[in-house]
Amino acid sequence: MRRYRALAATLASVPITLFGLILITFLIGRVVPIDPVLAIVGDRAPQDVVARTRLELGLDRPLPEQFIRYVGQLAQGDFGRSVMTSNRVSTDIARFFPATLELATAALLVAVLLGVPLGVYAAVRQGSWVDTVIRVVCLSGYSVPIFVLALLALLVFYATLQWAPGPGRQSVMFDGMVEQRTGLLLVDAALAGEWEAFRDAVKQITLPALVLGLSNMAYIARMTRAFMLESLQGEFVVTAKAKGLSAATVIWRHAFSNILVRLLTVIVLTYAGLLEGAVLTETIFSWPGLGQYLTGSLLNADMNAVLGATLVVGLTYVVLNLLSDLMYRVLDPRVR
């Protein structure tokens, strides 16, 4: 019974968090010294056009009324229209977000599949030269700015060695060839059976995913190492060794399974950070993702687009946190 109550409390916190998120995003949008009307009509428009647009947008109403109207629109999935693209913001996000989702997921896979084993290995061999090498690599991956890493990667692997294709999500010849279903190019290409286009998409995503993945791998490896060092000190590890189990069983089944909850938190937060859209990486690799969309809208004072994109980012945080909360219950019997 208590178990379900805790679960209900977690679920109940979701709408409250969302409401807070909408309120704060909305207020920031209204407080910034940007006139949304000027952004639409331009600064040379005649006075009566400015006044009429202001009325049409409902900006003459008191703030609470504007907020209620905004929430009402959101409830119908209407984020308003973007000035920059003159599309519905929801349409734009549906186009840009999958690109980010695809890149973030690929980068997370790189980061986790490399970072976790490296961190575990470094912890098991604490103090050895292997540990030192891993630590130095992680520290540099952590401290070298991503735009430096990204530009270097392009210089070496694209410009010099020509192992990787240039920036972009798709080569020009495949542009528009794949029918959009999920917006995830890899998935859509596979669904349509367009294997040429699929291979092209894989080639295009490899370099940005590696760059983004490696810089996040550093963090995951560092945290894994720290958690494992602590876990390996545990008395239950002595017990496991005293049972005569192999080193691999002691490390993975006993020490590692005890860090899963904390490791999951780190991984989920990393993923959430990636889903925000890596502005610098997306810019350098001409990746049409949410980061680019958000920055572009911000520079154009396109408030509907900014608010919409921010809400989507916030929503992914809420959803991911909820998921990891539910996963804790699976991974750790003490939380159940």
């Binding site: 239950f236 017990t239 005293a242 399974s257 019997p333």
Partner: peptide, 21 residues
């Protein structure tokens, strides 16, 4: 030897048992 021929019992089961098994 470990486990098979010689067992080891530790002080506090709160710490010496694996909490997630």
């Amino acid at each position: 030897i470990r486990g098979k021929r010689a067992g080891l019992i530790l002080q506090d089961p709160k710490y010496s048992l694996n909490p997630v098994m």
